[in-house]
Amino acid sequence: DETGKFLVLSLYDYQEKSPREVTMKKGDILTLLNSTNKDWWKVEVNGRQGFVPAAYVKFL
Rank of each mutant, 00 (worst) to 15 (best):
Q15A: 12
G27V: 01
G47E: 05
N34I: 07
W40C: 06
T3F: 13
D28L: 05
K42I: 14
V52T: 01
V43D: 00
K42D: 03
K26W: 04
V52L: 05
G27C: 07
D1G: 14
K25P: 01
Q15T: 14
A54Q: 04
L33T: 04
L32A: 03
D39S: 10
K58R: 12
A54V: 06
Y12M: 14
Q49F: 08
G50R: 01
K42L: 15
E44W: 05
N46E: 10
Y56V: 07
K58S: 12
K58M: 14
L9I: 15
E16L: 07
T31F: 11
N46I: 04
V57T: 03
E16S: 15
L30R: 00
R20A: 12
P19W: 13
K17C: 10
G4A: 12
K17R: 14
N34V: 09
V22F: 09
K58I: 15
L60Q: 07
E44Q: 09
K38W: 06
V8G: 09
S35M: 15
K58V: 15
W41K: 01
K25A: 09
F59T: 09
D1R: 13
K38Q: 11
K42M: 15
P53R: 04
F51E: 03
T3N: 13
F51C: 12
P53A: 03
T23A: 07
T31K: 13
W41S: 02
A54R: 11
D39Y: 15
T36N: 12
S18D: 12
S10A: 15
W41I: 08
S18C: 10
K26F: 06
L9R: 08
T23W: 04
P19I: 09
D13G: 05
M24W: 01
G27W: 04
F51N: 03
L60V: 11
D39A: 09
T31D: 04
K25S: 09
P19H: 10
M24K: 01
Q49W: 07
E2V: 14
L60P: 05
D28C: 07
A55K: 15
Y14N: 02
N46A: 10
V45D: 02
K26D: 03
P53E: 03
V57K: 00
N37S: 09
L7A: 06
D13K: 02
V43E: 00
V43S: 00
L33V: 11
D13H: 05
Y14R: 02
N46M: 08
G4T: 14
A55F: 09
F59N: 08
V22W: 02
T36L: 09
Y56D: 04
K58H: 10
A54D: 01
V45S: 10
D39Q: 10
R48G: 04
G50D: 00
V8F: 07
M24T: 04
P19V: 10
E44C: 10
P19Y: 10
I29H: 05
V8N: 01
N46V: 04
M24S: 00
V43H: 00
S10F: 07
K17P: 04
Y56W: 06
K42E: 14
Y56L: 15
Y14K: 01
A54I: 04
G27A: 02
T23F: 04
T31A: 09
L60A: 07
L11N: 04
G4M: 13
T23P: 06
A54H: 03
G4C: 15
Q15L: 12
L60M: 11
D28G: 03
K26I: 07
D13A: 06
T23D: 03
T23R: 05
P53V: 05
R48V: 10
G50I: 03
T31P: 09
S10D: 02
G27D: 06
K38S: 12
A55D: 10
E44Y: 05
N34C: 13
V45E: 01
L30F: 05
L32R: 01
V22D: 00
E2Y: 10
L33K: 04
Q15H: 12
E44S: 09
K38N: 11
K26Q: 10
K42P: 01
W40S: 01
F51R: 02
F59D: 07
E44R: 06
E44M: 08
T23V: 04
R48L: 07
K5W: 11
S18G: 12
K5R: 14
I29S: 03
G4S: 13
L32F: 05
L60D: 05
S35P: 07
D39P: 01
N34D: 15
Y56I: 07
S18Q: 08
L60W: 10
V8C: 12
P53M: 03
W40Q: 02
R48K: 12
S35D: 11
W41A: 04
D39I: 13
Q15C: 11
G50V: 03
S35V: 09
V22Q: 01
S10Q: 03
Y56N: 07
K58A: 14
D13V: 03
N46L: 07
Y56M: 14
E21L: 06
T23K: 03
K25Y: 09
V22L: 13
G47F: 04
I29F: 06
F6Y: 13
E16T: 08
W41T: 03
K17F: 05
T3V: 13
D1S: 14
K38P: 15
T36Q: 12
E2W: 08
T31Q: 11
N37R: 09
G4N: 13
L32I: 07
F59R: 10
V8S: 02
F59Q: 10
G4H: 15
N34G: 07
R20C: 15
F6R: 15
R48E: 06
A54W: 02
W40L: 03
N34E: 14
L7C: 12
A55S: 14
S10R: 04
P53H: 03
V8L: 15
K25E: 06
Y56T: 08
D1W: 13
L9H: 05
W41L: 07
T36A: 12
K5H: 13
G50T: 01
L9P: 00
A54P: 03
K58T: 15
T3S: 13
G4K: 14
V57E: 00
S10W: 08
Q15V: 14
K5I: 13
T3Y: 13
F6M: 13
V57W: 02
V8I: 09
E2P: 14
L60F: 11
W40E: 03
L11T: 06
T3Q: 13
E16A: 15
N46F: 07
K17A: 12
M24C: 06
Q15M: 12
K26G: 05
E16G: 15
G50Y: 04
E21I: 04
N37E: 10
K25G: 05
